[in-house]
């Protein structure tokens, strides 16, 4: 038996919305520690990895490891029926062919029950090795979203270059070119919200090119976290990570474009 409950069901809906444009279906792997999901887009350019810790749930019980094969568009249809402040419970039998989703309003005056048919998904998992990245940038997620959206009106590819002082996003297209630089926030600045700062950890300067179409896709997760972390290396996939307070994180990996 697998059973879990989230006070903020809305978070789960946002998570599914952050995944469903990139991958159509995937396996929720549930074990005693939490839930994980990995999926690659059909062109093998981007990978999404979700890791939810059991500590983030108000209830969590997983007697035996279970794999829930889920079509995200279908799940999203059911989650659409959930109220913004509803509590969400998910239940599945060990060998069942469906999972139940229960939405309960704050005052328990409305309870909704949905059964989602599960799929058998034959999906191999990619092994992502532990990597020491050359540059790690933490910035407001809304700022990253705005940059990706605005630059994609000008070109298809963004060049991200990082120095100790700043991270620069450059774009070029038929109409011309441009760049936007974000300076590292002053470290002595004790005032203000940490989530609004730009922090750069740098081992050595790095520059890589990426398709804006995918980055724009990743920014669907902006609603999940005030900050985003970008990890870059030379000729390495970019890791874009959104951390949710104590629930876990969603990570996107994007293969670079390489000059040939």
């Amino acid at each position: 038996m697998f059973e879990c409950a989230l006070i903020q069901g809305e978070l789960f809906r946002k998570l599914i919305a952050s995944v469903q444009d990139l991958v159509q279906d995937g396996n929720f792997m549930c074990d005693a520690n939490g839930i994980s999901l990995q999926g690659m887009d059909s062109s093998h350019v981007a990978l999404v990895a979700l890791a939810l810790k059991k500590e983030g749930f108000v209830e969590y019980r997983c007697d035996r490891d279970v794999t829930l094969g889920i079509n995200f568009a279908n799940l999203a249809k059911m989650l659409k029926c959930m109220g913004a402040k509803d509590r969400l419970s998910i239940r599945a039998q060990d060998e069942g062919d469906s999972a139940s989703f229960v939405f309960e309003s704050e005052d328990s005056s409305r309870v909704s029950n949905f059964e989602l048919k599960l799929m058998q998904i034959d999906q191999e998992q990619l092994g992502v090795p532990e990597t020491q990245y050359k540059a790690v940038i933490r910035m407001p997620s809304s700022e990253f979203q705005r940059i990706c959206k605005d630059l994609s009106a000008i070109g298809d590819t963004v060049s991200i270059s990082v120095t100790k002082e700043a991270v620069k996003f450059s774009v070029g297209g038929d109409i011309g070119s441009g760049d936007m630089s974000l300076r590292q926030s002053e470290s002595g600045d004790v005032d203000g919200d940490d989530s609004e700062k730009v922090m750069i950890e740098l081992e050595e300067p790095v520059q890589q090119n990426f398709a804006l179409r995918y980055l724009n896709n990743f920014t669907k997760a902006t609603a999940l976290s005030k900050t985003v972390t970008l990890s870059l290396g030379t000729d390495m996939p970019l890791v874009t990570e959104y951390k949710m307070d104590n629930l876990g994180s969603i990570r996107y990996y994007l293969a670079p474009k390489i000059d040939e």
């Binding site: 350019v45 474009k257 040939e260």
Partner: peptide
């Protein structure tokens, strides 16, 4: 010319 790499170039199936 920018060539889009794919993830299999970097990662293998587990």
């Amino acid at each position: 010319v920018d060539v889009q790499c794919d993830l299999f170039f970097f990662y293998n199936f587990r």
